[in-house]
Design a protein around this nucleic acid. Structure first.
Lengths: 136, 136
DNA sequence: TTACAAATCGGAATCATTACGATATAATCC
DNA sequence: GGATTATATCGTAATGATTCCGATTTGTAA
């Protein structure tokens, strides 16, 4: 996923182009790390001093639905990052301070063969937290 | 961990015995599943009609600090469950509807040998979500 | 250029959680 | 057992994140 693909996807799905949407996407594409709604708002403020929380939140949800962004929660905050280039299933090591991630190829579910008898698996979460070299 | 051990632990740490604390612990010990603050409040209401949210939240935090409870977050809600009997490190399959869990022996971190060069691991989360037989 | 649906704004509403002053109560000491 | 004291609780207000909503603006298609 890159900026153009994301904008293309929005257009294809019938959503309108706006400068704010493009900038949001650009920020995520540039930063490549998990950011909170407030953080992304602060990035937008210089260019759009009156931007509304509503706009940020609506677009975060929209982008997540369209898989332009990935969403998770740590440090008691909901955070978003630009969707990884790798299309295949993957997990992350996440820096608790700066939100940067490292890819993990392994998925622990691969070891498990199918669902247990008495439980239907619909989803899973595997995240490793810590501190990256710069933040250490 | 059982009710008596939990009460003992509170006492040892210098916290006072109260009927509300005992009942909270009893509910968790009986239910053995993840519950939200509101859910536990509803369980207490019949016996303590005027119980305050403050009491619930303070005790949930206290119990979590003392490892009487385990805490996690799914369906956009913070939830707590009675700490597992198994002392050793483990993970869960979690029913998204009723909060019941099944133990998982495997820990995906075991495969990884130590920290990567450029990342210090402090914590991790591995949870499998779905529906248990009753909730299916 | 116009018309219409979608996007945004600004602010209010909601929801979960925390904070706080006043009161009640468990544990301790006599 | 009764007084003392620190802790726990209550009731309510404050906070913070997120969502909602009516009014307005703007992108897009005819």
């Amino acid at each position: 996923m890159d900026v153009d693909q994301a904008l293309e996807l929005l257009k294809d799905q019938g959503y309108k182009y706006t400068g704010k949407r493009e900038e949001m996407i650009r920020v995520f594409a540039k930063e490549k790390r998990y950011m909170s709604a407030k953080e992304i708002l602060d990035y937008m403020k210089p260019d759009y001093p009156n931007i509304s929380f509503d706009t940020i939140y609506r677009n975060l949800s929209l982008f997540t639905e369209l898989h332009i962004l990935e969403e998770t929660e740590f440090n008691n905050e909901r955070k978003y990052r630009f969707s990884c280039a790798h299309k295949d299933h993957h997990h992350h090591l996440i820096c608790l301070r700066c939100g940067k991630t490292k890819h993990l190829k392994l998925c622990p579910l691969d070891g498990l063969l199918g669902d247990p008898d008495d439980f239907t698996i619909t989803d899973h979460k595997f995240e490793i937290y810590g501190y990256c070299q710069q933040c250490e």
